[in-house]
Amino acid sequence: MDEKTQVASLSVASNIILTLTKVIVGLVSGSVSILSEGIHSGIDLVAAFIALFAVKESGKPADSCHAYGHGKIENVSGTIEAALIFVAALMIIIEAIKKIQEIIYGNGGHVTDFGLGLGVLIMGVSAIMNWIVSTRLMKVAKRTDSVALEADALHLRTDVYTSLGVLVGLLLIKLTGWTIIDPIIALGVAFMIIKASIDLTKKAFAPLVDVSLPDEEREIIAEVLQRYEDEFVEFHKLRTRKAGAERHVDLHLVVAKYTPVVDVHDLCDRIEKEINERLYITYVLIHAEPCSNRDVECPVEEGLTSSCQSCQVRKPEQGSEVRDRKSESEI
């Protein structure tokens, strides 16, 4: 959790610097593409604060009001960040269209040479800084399975590409003198941001409606269960969901009718432990039930040869069962 907080704080600091610098350079130079990047970084700054809050809150232990923990706070954070990105894209599109109209009607659109040079410099520095910070964020996000940090990393990685796009646009304006390239580049930036917003919404919002874990993770759970298939009859009603970095799994495990409770408990513990080792932060709940509760014929009950070796081995002798009942009544 300390590492998650540290990288989230690093993102906040870098976004403060870049937002202020881009907005100032955009206003001085008159470049709408640089200003649009400033707006984008400003939204990223808000998102970075949200991510910082989310990672701190999600790390709190379960309490009486949140019996299943605070993991979904990260998903809420990611969804809000996706919405903010979309709003930023709309603002950039509006500004770019206004700039195109000004250029067409000859009412503006001039970008100073000084502004071009300064813009190229700040876009280059921005791309490098955001690449370094987003790479760091993504590594920690993958290692800790943090949706909030991954969302923040995606914001900054998008900023890298859009900064490079603006940089290329400014260079083209310098070479050609066509100022209309500036708002066109800004529109391209906006559409890239919208794409990032859609992708992030899909990833962050799905766990809020308890979507099952991905197929590859469900296969891992099935593999673990198959390792112990000689110790139970079958399993069913497997359900999975995710809350932030936490995974929740529950299932029904059918065991042989005469298996002692202590052995069933030990089996469940071993299954839960191995699933947790294979999948990061997984809480497993297993409901064990005897095979006699199933709507199937039991060969042992019918006096036939059993296909379930556990039942044959664990079935008590007839006399011992009577003695056990007698002892219980005496107690």
Rank of each mutant, 00 (worst) to 15 (best):
H66I: 09
A96C: 04
V23Q: 08
I94F: 15
I43Q: 14
R241K: 06
A204I: 04
V264A: 09
G71A: 06
D266F: 09
T79M: 00
L172N: 00
S146I: 08
L200R: 00
D152T: 07
K72T: 10
I122T: 15
K60N: 03
G303Q: 03
Q309C: 12
T19G: 02
V32K: 13
P207M: 09
V12I: 15
A62C: 01
R323G: 12
H287S: 05
T162D: 05
A204Q: 03
D152W: 06
H70R: 09
L45H: 01
W178K: 14
G303R: 02
N276W: 11
H155S: 02
T201G: 12
A256N: 07
A89W: 03
K273H: 13
H66T: 01
I73Y: 11
E297G: 12
A151R: 10
L154H: 11
G117E: 08
V120Y: 04
H287L: 03
T282S: 08
L20I: 09
D199I: 04
P260T: 13
D266G: 06
Q6V: 13
R241S: 08
M129H: 02
D145L: 13
E57T: 15
L267H: 01
T179R: 12
Y283N: 12
L172P: 03
M1Y: 14
S14K: 00
F232T: 06
I73E: 05
G42M: 02
D159L: 10
L27W: 07
T144K: 12
N75I: 08
D269R: 05
G188W: 12
F49M: 08
L137E: 09
L27T: 05
L156F: 14
V264H: 07
A127N: 00
A288Y: 12
I220R: 00
V25L: 06
V224A: 05
I221R: 01
F86A: 04
L164Q: 05
I103G: 02
R270H: 14
L170A: 02
E219C: 11
G244Y: 08
V262I: 15
V300W: 15
I92G: 00
G177V: 03
K202W: 10
E95N: 15
D230W: 01
E302F: 02
G169H: 00
L35M: 10
G188F: 10
K142D: 04
I193L: 05
C298E: 07
A96G: 04
L118E: 11
I43W: 15
D295N: 11
M123P: 01
I16W: 11
F49H: 02
R143V: 03
H70K: 02
G169V: 08
I97D: 01
F232W: 11
C311E: 05
S41Q: 06
L20P: 04
I286Y: 05
I271H: 03
L251G: 12
D44C: 04
A245F: 03
L213P: 03
V125C: 10
Q101E: 15
P316C: 01
I122E: 03
N75W: 05
S292H: 09
V168Q: 02
S292V: 08
A96I: 06
T179I: 12
A127R: 00
E328C: 10
L27Y: 00
G38S: 07
K257R: 15
I92L: 02
V313H: 13
V284K: 01
T176S: 06
L267R: 06
A222C: 12
A8K: 01
L170V: 07
Q101P: 13
T240A: 09
I220M: 10
I16H: 00
E302D: 04
I100L: 11
I221H: 01
